[in-house]
């Protein structure tokens, strides 16, 4: 029964309205003037893929949640500081840098990195390489980016696994 089409207009047109949206746009839009690639309908091609990815995400995270319990230590007590006290893992790169210099490690370098990230598309002005992984014309920018990311990962790994009492260097094995 639901297969029946409705007998009335799906979107009633207001009688007083004499134009559609495209009529007030003087030129082709950014998307329409470059359309040559193969296109498919979002329904069902995109929507089914998106649903499948969501189900997969939910299943994987549920399995992880069934297998591994979230940590819960003793109740908080300001009288018993652990040694070392560590920030959440994603800030351990910062904490590692703070061990060398409080200002530069905690504020200066992270602040400059955020500014650099915000400015990146304005600094890298030469067009080309969009939509292509590791495009050869962008190798310099990619190496700088990967260098920064790699350094942060190494610092985070050191802070997470290689720092013991009084932030001394320890080997975890």
């Amino acid at each position: 029964m639901l297969e029946d089409k409705p007998t009335y207009e799906r979107f009633p047109i207001r009688p007083g309205k004499t134009y559609g949206l495209m009529c007030v746009v003087p030129t082709a839009t950014e998307a329409t003037k470059i359309e040559t690639e193969k296109q498919v309908h979002a329904w069902p091609a995109a929507l089914t893929r998106e649903l499948a990815l969501f189900v997969l995400t939910l299943v994987i995270l549920s399995v992880v949640a069934l297998l591994f319990n979230a940590p819960l230590e003793e109740p908080a007590s300001r009288l018993h500081p652990p040694n070392p006290a560590k920030a959440p893992w994603y800030f351990l790169g910062l904490q590692e840098m703070v061990a060398y210099s409080a200002f530069w490690g905690g504020i200066g370098i992270p602040g400059l990195l955020v500014l650099l990230a915000l400015a990146a598309p304005y600094l890298e002005r030469k067009p080309g390489g969009e939509g292509v992984w590791f495009h050869s014309s962008r190798s310099a920018a990619n190496w700088v980016f990967l260098g920064i990311v790699g350094t942060l990962l190494v610092l985070t790994a050191i802070g997470t696994f290689f720092r013991g009492e009084n932030w001394a260097f320890v080997v975890p094995w």
């Binding site: 940590p71 230590e73 003793e74 109740p75 652990p82 920030a87």
Partner: peptide, 18 residues
């Protein structure tokens, strides 16, 4: 509000004071 949470936030927020 366990030891892990409390001291991580003590450390994390001390960075803000720099």
């Amino acid at each position: 509000w366990d030891q892990l949470a409390f001291w991580a936030i003590v450390v994390g927020t001390s960075i803000a004071s720099y």
